[in-house]
């Protein structure tokens, strides 16, 4: 599976990638981006099957990135990985077309379930 991980923190990207591996997504191909702008470019260039994105980033934020992707017609499954747990964050994510929001800190199991559900939703 090809996953794009967008986060301005290298460590957080590393944590997400590690959690993905531990969640059992063995044959992972990971593309990383450090902000929303780079993320949008990476979606176009790398055609990932899934985007895991931070909310709060310098420059183009996660929600902006999602809104721009969806506005351009892109439908790549998109999940937020964020420590923003506020309701309106979730609402806004949903409204913009996000498939799920996973709140930090999370466990590999939680990540796994969220992703499985999102991918299943796409498949059906």
């Amino acid at each position: 599976m090809r996953v794009l991980v967008v986060d301005d923190s290298r460590v957080m990207r590393q944590i997400v990638v590690r959690a993905l591996r531990q969640a059992g997504f063995g044959s992972l191909e990971v593309v990383e981006a450090g902000d929303g702008e780079a993320g949008i470019t990476a979606v176009a260039d790398e055609a990932p099957e899934l985007v895991l994105c931070d909310w709060n980033m310098p420059g183009t934020s996660g929600i902006e990135m999602l809104e721009r992707l969806r506005a351009s017609g892109d439908r790549t499954p998109f999940g937020f990985v964020t420590s923003e747990a506020a309701t309106e964050v979730h609402d806004r994510a949903a409204a913009a077309g996000a498939d799920f929001v996973v709140t930090k800190p999370f466990t590999p199991e939680v990540l796994h379930e969220a992703i499985e559900a999102a991918l299943a939703g796409v498949a059906s």
């Binding site: 747990a85 309701t87 979730h90 498939d99 799920f100 800190p105 199991e109 969220a114 559900a117 299943a120």
Partner: peptide
């Protein structure tokens, strides 16, 4: 902050919220 995952109730993918290993409330809202 230890609450593991709070999957948002998003229209498209609406599975039951994931299990909470820490046992905290799964209430998303």
């Amino acid at each position: 902050a230890d609450v593991a995952a709070v999957p948002a109730p998003v229209e498209a993918a609406a599975p039951a919220p994931a299990a909470q290993p820490s046992g905290s409330s799964p209430v998303p809202k």
